[in-house]
């Protein structure tokens, strides 16, 4: 039976749990809103992962996991063109740049990070292709899924709580009117500063997240912190002003008559 559906109905954590318990081998493809991820499993363990947004070659993985500097990555990437990951790995080990353990750890960290990002996807079509294998020239790992699943479940709970606090990303933020608060005196992380720099009633949270390259979970987490600190408050975005349709509210259309009607209501309530 085909294992396909939408993350709305079946979360990434549930999918990983299924793969883990059924000891499945194959490729889980998830098409998100603007990114696609392919995760490969062998007998219920994580073997390989990639997204269409990032280079998935070994040199890039080593750079992303801080094993290589940007200059080293660029130099290797230009010289190792046409070389498979396995060949490059051997070359780096033999040259004494890295050990096999470092390469495996970097790959595991990079693949796990991809899956952590997937936990923040609330929507996306998924499809599991049985027995599909990673590209032959790539280095694979055998990573147990239990810890990742537990982490995913924890994130899911956090997301549910944040969804309660910030139900929609289509709202905007504005700074609170607190003359005593000076933002310069507040300790904010780089990501928080980035979000703060976009705070305006004109920018929705969704737009800020896109501009600051943050996932739904990350933007909600940061905004929740800013709200709790009393630095910002949620407002309706200015770009989508909604007009009050009085024709539906009142049985009369003339503004003067509407005012009279409200005054009649006031008099009546007072006399109750």
């Amino acid at each position: 039976m085909a294992l396909r559906g939408n993350l709305r109905d079946f979360t990434v954590t549930q999918l990983l749990n299924l793969v883990h318990l059924a000891r499945k081998t194959g490729m889980l493809s998830i098409q998100g809103t603007n990114e696609q991820a392919d995760i490969f499993f062998r007998e219920g363990k994580l073997a390989y992962a990639r997204t269409n947004k990032e280079d998935d070659h070994l040199a890039y993985v080593l750079y992303k996991t801080n094993v290589l500097s940007k200059a080293q990555y660029k130099a290797i990437a230009s010289r190792a063109q046409g070389m498979s990951d396995k060949e490059l790995g051997l070359l780096l080990i033999n040259a004494g740049y890295v050990t096999q353990e470092v390469i495996i750890n970097s790959l595991q960290q990079y693949f796990a990070d991809i899956i952590r990002r997937l936990f923040t996807w609330a929507e996306g079509l998924f499809n599991f292709e049985n027995d599909a294998r990673p590209p032959a020239d790539r280095i694979t790992v055998r990573l147990d899924l239990e810890n990742i699943i537990i982490e995913g479940a924890r994130q899911l709970r956090e997301m549910e709580q944040l969804m309660q606090e910030i139900p929609s990303l289509d709202i905007a933020l504005k700074f609170t009117d607190r003359p005593g608060t000076n933002l310069r005196n507040v300790n904010l992380s780089v990501e928080e500063w980035r979000v703060v720099s976009y705070v305006s009633p004109k920018n929705t949270l969704r737009q800020i997240a896109r501009a600051a390259n943050l996932s739904d979970l990350e933007i909600r987490r940061i905004v929740y912190g800013l709200l709790q600190a009393g630095l910002v408050e949620m407002v309706r975005p200015e770009l989508t002003p909604r007009t009050l349709d009085r024709s539906k509210m009142f049985p009369v259309q003339d503004k003067g008559e509407q005012r009279t009607l409200v005054n009649r209501l006031i008099d009546r309530i007072r006399s109750l």
């Binding site: 009050l244 503004k255 509407q258 005012r259 409200v262 005054n263 209501l265 006031i266 309530i269 007072r270």
Partner: peptide, 13 residues
């Protein structure tokens, strides 16, 4: 409470 809401409606108008 009802009166305050009606006052708000008048103010909005």
């Amino acid at each position: 409470v009802l009166l305050e809401l009606l006052y708000s409606i008048l103010e909005e108008m």
